[in-house]
């Protein structure tokens, strides 16, 4: 049930200040506005996608202070003061990140709708554990749904990105 139907005020407005992709951004939002809607509507960052709005598909994944978060389940006000990284922030100065490049080289995606969530989830994974096994990669991605690919091409792209960033002599 929405707030107004419960007789609560929906018009109380909160100021939100945060960093998005390295830039300071601010906005005025209702308490109930999700981070995803804030990014997509208020900041016009439509790269973050909504595939379920109930926390299952992972399409909306962004990094909040380095940790993957489902922006459909998080309120914009909860991100106050945080550093948020979205898909738009992955490529630097027009150069694809090595992960993006590898996903391109390996035909990882088809329709592209799940893509932002996967890329953000994988980015977080590789930050935390730069050299995962294929099984660990599949496990880490098991909260992201892709309806098009059957996942093999995505996993292949990730493994190739890992291989290219780890010279052969890994111990």
């Amino acid at each position: 049930m929405s707030l107004s139907a419960k007789g609560l005020s929906t018009d109380e407005i909160f100021q939100v200040e945060l960093t998005v992709n390295g830039e300071r951004r601010e906005g005025a939002v209702e308490a109930r506005k999700t981070l995803a809607d804030f990014l997509r509507e208020d900041l016009a960052l439509t790269g973050t996608h909504l595939g379920c709005e109930h926390g299952v598909c992972g399409a909306c994944t962004v990094l909040v202070d380095g940790e993957p978060a489902r922006s459909c389940l998080m309120l914009a006000v909860q991100a106050r003061g945080s550093a948020v990284l979205t898909i738009e922030g992955l490529a630097q100065k027009g150069e694809l990140s090595s992960l993006q490049q590898s996903m391109w080289d390996n035909h990882s995606f088809q329709c592209g709708f799940c893509t932002p969530g996967f890329l953000m989830q994988i980015t977080a994974l590789l930050e935390q554990s730069p050299n995962p096994t294929e099984g660990e990669v599949r496990e880490a991605l098991s909260g992201n749904i892709c309806r098009c690919t059957g996942y093999q091409s995505i996993v292949k792209g990730v493994m190739a990105a890992i291989a290219s960033s780890n010279p052969k002599d890994v111990s």
């Binding site: 790269g47 898909i87 694809l96 996903m103 391109w104």
Partner: peptide, 17 residues
Amino acid sequence: RRSEDPRLLTGRGMYVD
């Protein structure tokens, strides 16, 4: 390599939403 990917991999796709 797909010509669709540079936009889709960088969040610059244009879906109806």
